[in-house]
Design a protein around this nucleic acid. Structure first.
Length: 729
DNA sequence: CGAAATTGGGTTTTT
DNA sequence: CCCAATTTCG
């Protein structure tokens, strides 16, 4: 028992099960942590406790999370408890930990430590090339389908040979061929895709006893967050590392398993006690985040799933307000309603940073964004088109990649003719073919005498490669990343080409590149011993969730998937319709349970205020498609008395056995009609119309119509708020 | 050989 | 609507 006062302090303020998990010593530990039950607190205190009691040394701690953001948050919170000792611990994502192991030992598997990490776009491009090389019809077998099959195989630790054994159709036969070639091409390029990071690490640990001994001895204490989202490779990786000491503590919630499509296997957590019969099991069921009403709603929804670990969240913060459910005419009315609500809340003194809006698919954000921009509401959006996926950023990154990884043909193909240098498809294929046939790196092939290359292309390639060679010398001289990037953008003519365009778009691209330079400067400052290869590997592993800012002035928009692990005082979930959420694909595949868990995740993000909206009609593909919708089955799984919706709006009559108040009915019909009070604009507000100039709002009418008196000619006009080019001033 | 124009195809979720 | 791939034109 702890005698030390510092140790007592670590346990203070923890509830009994939390304390139980923190003080558990050697041996397997399963922490079933319901949403908002303080699991990060438990993990950080457990680490601190192990250190303080002298059971563990900092360098023996390996703490795994799913996002870098979660990792840095954990690191910061541990640091508050134990200080500098944190630096010796590995607190990072699965992928980052694997990349780090591989940098040290990849040579054993025939890679250099400068191996490139391919994101899924790179991966798809290479798969496409393999399909072409094998003369496969990409109309029949799309690269996307191949990619998901290959990724799936890798997550199950199936090699191309393993896969070939199981082939049962022509499709799978094709996949086997592509998979086989793809793997060889990847290796020849000295590159790994995301899945490879895990797979190759497992290979390393399985094939080299001394490597395995080294790591399993080093990491005597292993902790894993979000264990319900681990897949088979990750499971195997953990097995290999914990085999000797069995000090594995996992935290998770089977009700929040939402990554099945990515190979996550919920059985990993469900069967933990079979894997470790002596496992100590702790359940955290007290929720410190939400009101009882929100929890009851979430519990009710998730109870429709079978075969879960029983758990019942409760709180002592009180009942709170009912869940608000709103029917809107279409997605425009929905956006208008949410935007107006945000404004109303802000007027009441709520900070925008306290508000989040969730949706099922990224495409749903567009209409909402339009409306928020129009209303002048600041927002940040997580996901969608990501910074590192922008063409100019990928180009710059691929320049750096080719400088450190001369084998990377994908990087070469991307940059050789960007900016235009007169090196087309044909010339590039010549270079790649030459490299392949001579067994040399792409770089060496590009500076070699290539037979059959046109004179113009030859000249151009020579010029390009001499610039690259000059840059490479500076890389080898240990130039800082930022300096190299800047020189590269100048000397390759990339910047010049963009400047010559003189378009607003090009201007934006230049600004993005400046942003990238800032990122490299920051990297240089934080990593005096760093190098390009490490920088590239680091940015390759960034996730969307890592870009969330704590900005007072911004409402946060994101998919439900990205919302996991976060909390907000006020939450809106839009698009609560069957087909959107649950998604039609999931309905077809009979995969409703995972969608329901996603709903559970979404609902439990809200601390005090939760609003769910659905639209009677929803357009798709820019308005050409889409029709009447059916409200989400998940809405109907929430007991009516937890919501403020007193009758079924779609029926148009009060529900049997329940008396609807007049006010409720009036309010309901107003919403159905297009909600008069939900307008983005308000009477008396100054607005600007792109054609008619400045004016003031003099009236609001049902159907989203605003009446505006314009200053220019004094005329008063009725405008459709959704379609008129009208903005708040 | 490269750039512009056209057409056709597709939307789940992502480390 | 937005992209990528193909066709067409210079």
């Amino acid at each position: 028992m702890p005698a030390d006062a510092a140790i007592d302090a670590l346990l203070e303020g923890l509830n009994p099960p939390q304390r139980d998990a923190v003080v558990h010593g050697e041996g397997p530990l399963l922490i079933l942590a319901g949403a908002g039950s303080g699991k990060t607190r438990v993990l950080t205190h457990r680490i601190a406790y192990l250190l303080r009691t002298g059971q563990a040394k900092p360098s023996e701690i390996l703490a795994i999370t799913f996002t870098n953001k979660a990792a840095s948050e954990m690191r910061e919170r541990v640091e508050l408890l134990v200080g500098r000792a944190t630096r010796a611990m590995w607190v990072m994502t699965f992928h980052a930990a694997c990349a780090r192991m591989l940098r040290a030992d990849a040579h054993r598997l025939g890679y250099t430590r400068q191996f490139t990490i391919y994101d899924s776009a790179d991966q798809r491009r290479l798969i496409k090339k393999c399909l072409d090389d094998l003369d496969v019809d990409v109309k029949r077998f799309t690269p996307r389908a191949m990619q998901s099959q290959i990724s799936d195989a890798k997550n199950k630790l199936r090699s191309p040979e393993d896969y070939r054994q199981l082939v049962g159709s022509f499709f799978e036969q094709t996949v086997a061929d592509v998979y086989d070639l793809y793997e060889r091409e990847l290796h020849r390029s000295n590159a790994m895709d995301f899945d490879d990071l895990l797979v190759r690490s497992v290979n390393l640990l399985e094939m080299f006893q001394e490597v395995r001994d080294r790591y399993s001895a080093a990491f005597r204490w292993i902790m894993v967050d979000e264990y319900q989202d681990t897949n088979h490779v990750q499971y195997r990786w953990l097995q290999l590392l914990t085999g000797d000491h069995r000090n594995l503590a996992v935290v998770g919630d089977d009700a929040q398993s939402i990554y099945g499509f990515r190979g996550a296997d919920i059985k990993n957590i469900l069967n933990f006690e079979d894997d470790y019969p002596d496992a100590h099991v702790v359940k955290l069921e007290q929720n410190y985040r939400s009101t009882q009403t929100i929890l009851d709603a979430a519990n009710a929804v998730i109870s429709n799933n079978r075969g879960q670990m029983t758990k019942h969240l409760w709180t002592d913060v009180g009942e709170g307000d009912p869940v608000r459910v709103r029917e809107m005419a279409d997605e425009h009315a929905e956006s208008r309603f949410v935007t107006a609500e945000v404004n109303r809340l802000v007027d009441e003194g709520v900070s925008r940073a306290e508000i989040a809006i969730f949706y099922r698919t990224n495409a749903q954000s567009r209409v909402l964004e339009d409306m928020l921009v129009r209303a002048g509401v600041g927002y940040q959006i997580i996901g969608g088109t990501k910074f590192y996926e922008r063409a100019e950023i990928k180009d710059a990154v691929n320049y750096l990649t080719f400088l450190v990884n001369p084998q990377d043909g994908t990087a070469f193909t991307r940059i050789a003719n960007s900016p235009r240098r007169g090196l087309g498809q044909t010339s590039m294929s010549r270079v790649l073919a030459h490299a392949a046939s001579m067994g040399m790196t792409v770089w060496d092939a590009a500076i070699d005498d290539i037979p059959g290359l046109a004179t113009a292309a030859r000249k151009s390639l020579e010029r390009f490669m001499s610039t690259m060679t000059r840059l490479k010398e500076r890389v080898e001289g240990g130039a800082p990343v930022a300096q190299l990037l800047q020189e590269l953008l100048e000397e390759t003519g990339y910047k010049e080409a963009l400047e010559a365009e003189r378009t607003i778009e090009a201007q934006g691209r230049l600004e993005n590149l400046e942003e990238l330079v800032r990122v490299t400067q920051e990297y240089d400052a934080n990593n005096p011993e760093g190098n390009i290869g490490e920088f590239l590997q680091q940015i390759a592993l960034l996730a969307d969730a890592d870009t969330i800012r704590d900005d007072e002035g911004l409402v946060t928009l994101m998919t439900l998937h990205n919302a996991k692990g976060l909390e907000f005082p006020i939450v809106f979930i839009i698009g609560m319709e069957d087909g959107t959420f649950p998604h039609s694909r999931s309905i077809e595949e009979g995969n409703i349970d995972e969608e329901r868990r996603l709903a559970y995740v979404g609902l439990t993000r809200a601390m005090r205020d939760l609003t769910l909206t659905y639209a009677r009609r929803r357009g798709a593909f820019g308005g050409s498609m889409g029709g009447p919708t059916i409200r989400s089955r998940f809405l109907d799984e929430i007991p009516r008395d937890l919501t403020d919706q007193r009758q079924r709006l779609s029926a148009g009559f009060p529900a049997p056995g329940r008396v609807a108040s007049w006010a409720g009915a009036a309010q309901a019909s107003a919403e159905v009609a297009g909600d008069t009070d939900g307008s983005v604009f308000r009477i008396g507000e100054d607005v600007v119309h792109s054609k008619l100039g400045e004016g003031v709002v003099t009236g609001l009418e049902p159907g989203g119509i605003v009446v505006v008196r314009f200053a220019g000619d004094g005329s008063e006009r009725k405008l459709m708020a959704d379609y008129a080019p009208l903005k708040r001033r």
